[in-house]
Design a binder for these strands. Structure first.
Lengths: 275, 275
DNA sequence: GGAGCGCTGTATCTTATGTTACGTATTTTG
DNA sequence: CAAAATACGTAACATAAGATACAGCGCTCC
């Protein structure tokens, strides 16, 4: 049974030619408002011609454009009148494969932040923002992208931010540059990597301040870490989820940026002019 | 200060003549949808004539009817997207003070998935799972880590998964290996990168199937993409958030894994024994 | 009670919106 | 590789939508 136009579209999008698919995707991405505008606006946004929009609409089974718009409006009216339907909507078809995954992920985030005080985050952000030394980031097999993500942002707002990549021997050698004034951000979730643990231990011995992102079972690195962020990772999937840690990382990036507002604004301008 | 048209109306309804007041009341009663319909329908519903509607609209300060409709649509768009309008949000039990950042992120995810049908995800997963050709992944300045994250997982459960890294010239050269049977997964959010767009265009010309992860404003790459995933990125921060896209990526990884269950299980065992 | 003013609807006009026809480009198929 | 079919956009077209002019009506205030 097809109850919404959005469903109808995803049902038939496979059978559509390329341009009509663009129209469909544009509509889904700006659902449903773009469909209430004129054909001209719709087509311009989608980057196709007006007739393509009309063919698209006709393929969905509508006689003409106004009829299509009326259908969208009716749908919208129903939605606006019963706010409940909106929350129910995604999960309504119980056998949906997506929802459990999403629900679990959302729960993980709430749970992760519940165990994470504002003060903790603020402390870590302050530590990352104070420019006494260098900041190094590294991650494990699956979490290294998170380290990269964070490094990509931090490197823009402040100097001396380095992501440790490549072979173990390469980053082990960087230990020589690390000291008391420096911060090492490590991502490590199950199954914890020996190489990272060893690396963290050595860094700790050299007096490096360690910020650890790990899962709720805590990587052994927690023993050496100055700050530990424990994220929930369990989802109904073959893999663990790093999404909660990702969000914490983004939150931290935002907090650090705010603290460095004045400096970073100038730095970002300088960077822009370098392009 | 007057922020909504509804307020504007109740502000001025006192100064209106009888017929216009009927128009105003009709609009409030069916807010805002009746205002998106034609003047004729609006006037019929209100039981007044078309010119009365137009005078009413003009008295509200709008130059013409379309301008009035645009204002209503903008308002509606803001309402549909903002978390405020969403009713009982499961998170709001106490801890919502933790961080507006978290709330916004959670909303982004719900919103992203609301625009994403199971079928769409299943289609993409199927495409990624069918082993006819190779899978390439690449991302932009901030999103490349997402490409890496996905590549790290997919590469474990199937062969011929490559993350395109390093300098532009390097991955441009890889185009020579790409053809109809191959899939290219691209991550590109504002500000969209020219190099990526060019790359996608060339790949598209070679018949490569493109899966695009982008933001709700759609990267220009959407024109060439077979599948488009539009994630919400707005958060109260100096940066855009890729968290929603991250979760979609994880969901896809999970779906592909499930589809390849039989094959991948064996493959994972083999990999384990290689350690 | 009559003159003036303001409100409202009918009828007409204009605009811009949706629609369609057709030629070119692209893809598919034999 | 050629021919057919399909897809797509340009441009002309028709129509329905919004805008305007004007006349009738009721109301108020001298």
């Amino acid at each position: 049974m097809i109850s919404s136009i959005a469903e109808l579209i995803s049902d038939r999008i496979g059978t559509m030619p390329a341009s009509e698919r663009r129209a469909a995707q544009t509509l889904i991405a700006n659902y449903p408002l773009i469909g209430l505008k004129t054909v001209a606006e719709f087509s311009a946004t989608a980057g196709v011609s007006s007739p393509t929009i009309l063919r698209f609409v006709s393929r969905l089974g509508f006689q003409n454009y106004p009829e299509f718009q009326s259908a969208l409006q009716d749908e919208l009216a129903a939605q606006l009148q019963s706010p409940a339907s909106r929350t129910l909507n995604p999960a309504s078809s119980g056998s949906s494969a997506v929802s459990p995954m999403l629900e679990a992920t959302l729960d993980n985030m709430r749970e992760t932040f519940r165990h994470l005080s504002d003060k903790q985050l603020a402390d870590i952000a302050a530590r990352l923002a104070e420019r006494r030394g260098k900041t190094f980031l590294i991650g494990g097999r699956f979490t290294d992208p998170l380290a990269r993500y964070m490094a990509a942002h931090l490197a823009i707002i402040q100097p001396d931010v380095y992501h440790l990549a490549g072979q173990e021997s390469i980053w082990r050698d960087r230990l020589i540059d690390m000291g008391k004034r420096d911060v090492l951000v490590i991502f490590d979730i199950r199954r914890y990597q020996d190489s990272l643990v060893r690396f963290a231990e050595t860094a700790h011995q050299r007096g490096v301040q360690i910020v650890l992102f790990t899962d709720q079972w805590l990587s052994p690195i927690a023993r050496f870490a100055r700050h530990v962020i424990a994220g929930r990772t369990a989802v109904p999937s073959a893999w663990d989820s790093s999404a909660a840690l990702f969000v914490v990382a983004e939150t931290l990036i935002g907090a650090v940026t705010r603290q460095l507002e004045a400096d970073s604004a100038k730095r970002i301008r300088d960077l822009e002019s370098l392009r």
